[in-house]
């Protein structure tokens, strides 16, 4: 299990990186945290001729709260996000989700943006991006553009990023003040990719009914899924058993999970509905307490 040969470049600026990517196009792969790419290289499942290592572009290592967003630079490691007080205060659902990413050694190296553009549909970060209606900022030869999550993910491990484009930042819109949240995951072992994960965001009115609810799921198909009909069903409702049962059904209708050696599609479908209900209840509980931790 030794990686195949490749040529290695370590640009120190975004421009330099983009230039390398446009020169080598499909032959090149971006190396950020490397926690998904290097195993694939070691297993020789990926064979890029060129690696463009962005770890020397120090300007990409940041977290900022700006214009109603949490902006996460492409070199911000999971661990940086996990420990940042502004994340805990402003986007606690992200902090909770990031704790489910691998183990500490993985989180010390892996990046949030890298995880998103790797587009593993059972990963946690893409689901949070979808929950918060976030986007990824990319820089290419023709300039900078923001790709909303709906336009980013195509299917398993596939995005609309061009081969000559570099993802430089992930933008998570801040959840509304007082919103309750929850992130729940069923994985075979702690730290494994999700069999199913559900993120929920709920705002409540004074009577304890749902004003707005969002759900986002991982592990249930080729991309993260926002079950729109389920979300619509929730507006104005109290989270009674019958409402949650209808929501669970709507969640199960909205997804197209596949079977693999760890779980059947049927299992994933069932658990997605279960976790949606649990996550909504937990989120509502937080919303009632005013959205704090």
């Amino acid at each position: 299990m030794k990686p195949p040969r490749f040529r290695y470049f370590a640009p120190t600026s975004v421009d330099e990186a983009v230039e390398l990517l446009s020169t080598h196009a499909d032959a090149a792969k971006v190396l950020a945290g490397g926690q998904s790419l290097v195993p694939m290289l070691n297993l020789r499942l990926a064979r890029p001729e060129v690696l463009v290592d962005i770890n020397r572009i120090e300007s990409l290592s940041y977290l900022r709260v700006e214009d109603g967003h949490l902006a996460v630079g492409a070199l911000a490691r999971h661990r940086m996000v996990e420990k940042a007080p502004e994340v805990a205060a402003r986007v606690p659902v992200l902090q909770e989700a990031v704790r489910h990413v691998g183990h500490v050694q993985i989180r010390n190296r892996g990046t949030v943006t890298g995880s998103i553009v790797h587009a593993d549909p059972s990963a946690e970060m893409p689901a949070v991006l979808a929950l918060l209606d976030g986007s990824v900022r990319v820089v290419g030869p023709s300039g900078t553009r923001d790709i909303p999550w709906q336009e980013l993910f195509l299917t398993y491990f596939t995005t609309t990023l061009g081969p000559d484009e570099l993802a430089v930042e992930t933008r998570f819109p801040l959840p509304p003040a007082g919103a309750g949240w929850s992130f729940m995951e069923v994985a075979r072992r702690h730290g494994d990719f999700a069999l199913v994960a559900v993120a929920a965001l709920v705002t409540a009115d004074e009577t304890g009914r749902v004003k707005e609810a969002r759900l986002s799921l991982a592990g249930v198909g080729g991309t993260p899924v926002r079950p729109e009909r389920a979300e619509a069903l929730l507006a104005g409702q109290a989270l009674e058993d019958d409402v949650l049962a209808a929501v669970a059904d709507a969640v199960r209708e909205a997804i197209e999970p596949e079977s693999d050696i760890h779980a059947s599609a049927e299992y994933r479908r069932h658990v997605a509905g279960v976790l949606a209900g649990r996550a909504l209840r937990a989120a509502m509980e937080r919303a009632r307490r005013g959205g704090e931790g």
Binding site: G34, Q105, I106
Partner: peptide, 8 residues
């Protein structure tokens, strides 16, 4: 900080 040396 602890990291996997097989992934670098």
């Amino acid at each position: 900080q602890p990291v996997r040396s097989c992934l670098m």
